[in-house]
Write a protein that binds this DNA or RNA. Structure first.
Lengths: 196, 196
DNA sequence: GTCTATATATTGATAGAC
DNA sequence: GTCTATCAATATATAGAC
């Protein structure tokens, strides 16, 4: 790969993730990212030959972060508890979401408007969540089509709550949605127990 | 007000609305907005002394557009039909939402990251929707606290669907959410009829 | 292979002409 | 009151030094 072992590339990606989230892609200058990572202004172009490439690396990192988080969740809990564990992410990150919004939603908008090349790349990160949830619902006994439908319902309500909590600066929209979804999951579980 | 009668100001706002939606706030140059409105590059600063002021005018216009749309809905339908009419907005605008996302959500992100002065201004536009829905639910017989809760539930699912339809470039997420919410509203209506 | 000095383009904004 | 020529700052990107 020819990547240097100094870890500067990783530091650049980490700095980019934070600044993209905080200020958005367009407003974040490569010079600022380089500086935050301890490099001189123009040096970042050695590691990423264009701003697009840095964005691409950021998306890859988000995919890895999400996959890692969900894998950990899978090792810690079982069945319906895994799905409820997913909801906890919104509460753990609540204040960040209210202040800066969901980083994925921000990136999705920024990158789709900025570069055709990156169009749809962020969808991959969401797809990780969609698919993981569908898998969990299926393992809880839902038929494949049902499992996917449940996943989409949960994702829609979940990310809608994060979005509006951000725009309205009102954390209670997240709390309410999480409670609503918990009740919904409980009802599904009760119904599935009845069947057997 | 001292505003010119030529309508140039209105044309600037209209051009800004479209370009902010299409490319985002940061990437939209004032020169491009001026040109789209038929003015020379620097002339826009006569009508808006800073980019912030143009953004502020755009938000005001969005508030007026939303209020106008909801007032029309109120004159065309009654009771539960009004709430179902609200859902239709997502289906009428479906293709635009999938391609460019919800313009309010885009503005909310852009402006909040760009300027502290405009922080929370976009919340006013969403608030128009929140409040209108709560009013309609209340008129359908829901207690005030319940009506507000219903409004928040509908808004969360509704805007979540628009968001994910955009990020995933998948219109069916909107269709599914609208159908789900229609059924939910029908269930509420049936339950309220039972009470009386 | 790693980094720095510099080019080029574009931006938001202003001073001042008509 | 209306608009134009121009500024100063900042951005991405490159050529080439170490």
């Amino acid at each position: 790969m020819g990547r240097p072992a100094t870890g500067k590339r990783q530091r650049l990606v980490a700095a980019a993730i934070e600044q993209f989230h905080r200020q958005g892609y367009a407003r974040t200058s490569l010079a600022a990212v380089a500086q935050a990572a301890g490099l001189s202004a123009g040096n970042i172009f050695y590691y990423f030959k264009a701003k697009d490439d840095l964005a691409s690396a950021v998306i890859d990192e988000w995919c890895a972060v999400q996959a890692g988080y969900l894998a950990q969740l899978e090792s810690e809990a079982c069945g319906w508890q895994r799905i409820e564990g997913f909801l906890q992410q919104a509460q753990v990150m609540r204040d960040v979401y209210v202040t800066l919004g969901c980083p994925l939603a921000g990136l999705a908008r920024d990158l789709r408007r900025e570069s055709d090349a990156l169009n749809g790349e962020v969808a991959r990160v969401y797809a990780v969540q969609f698919q993981w949830l569908a898998t969990q619902f299926a393992r809880c006994g839902a038929a494949p089509a049902r499992a996917e439908d449940y996943s989409r319902t949960l994702m829609t309500d979940y990310h809608g709550a994060i979005l509006l909590a951000y725009t309205q600066a009102d954390a209670s929209l997240i709390d309410d949605a999480v409670e609503r979804l918990r009740n919904w999951i409980e009802a599904l579980r009760a119904a599935s127990l009845k069947e057997h």
